[in-house]
């Protein structure tokens, strides 16, 4: 479980099946912007497990942490991500 403001990193992954972790956000560091509670969990529901649910969070990523020098230099991207996609990241 994560709390508002926690630093997190998305897992490095390349699943063959369905996931709602966008490729461009795999392995990226961000911060929990909102705790969404429990939502239907798409990765398992896509396999026919209709009742699958998991805690989800809105995570904010600074553009530089996603694109390096190759994106909009200022600002951020927010995405809604499930607990399984995330691991804790120590404050630096």
């Amino acid at each position: 479980m994560f709390a508002l403001g926690d630093r997190v990193r998305t897992r490095i992954a390349n699943p063959a099946g369905h996931t709602r972790l966008p490729r461009y956000l795999s392995g990226r560091a961000g911060r929990v912007d909102a705790v969404l509670g429990t939502l239907p969990y798409p990765d398992r529901r896509a396999e026919g497990i209709v009742s699958a649910r998991e805690t989800a969070y809105t995570v904010r990523f600074e553009n530089a942490d996603v694109w390096g020098p190759d994106g909009e230099p200022r600002g951020s991207i927010c995405a809604d991500l499930f607990e399984s996609y995330l691991e804790p990241l120590e404050e630096q």
Binding site: R20, L21, P22, L25, L36, L39, P40, P42, A56, T58, R60, E72, R74, G75, S76, I77, C78, A79, D80, L81, F82
Partner: peptide, 11 residues
């Protein structure tokens, strides 16, 4: 500052 919201779940 621009925030881009990528709608990746049922929000």
């Amino acid at each position: 500052e621009i925030t881009v919201w990528d709608s990746t779940a049922e929000v």
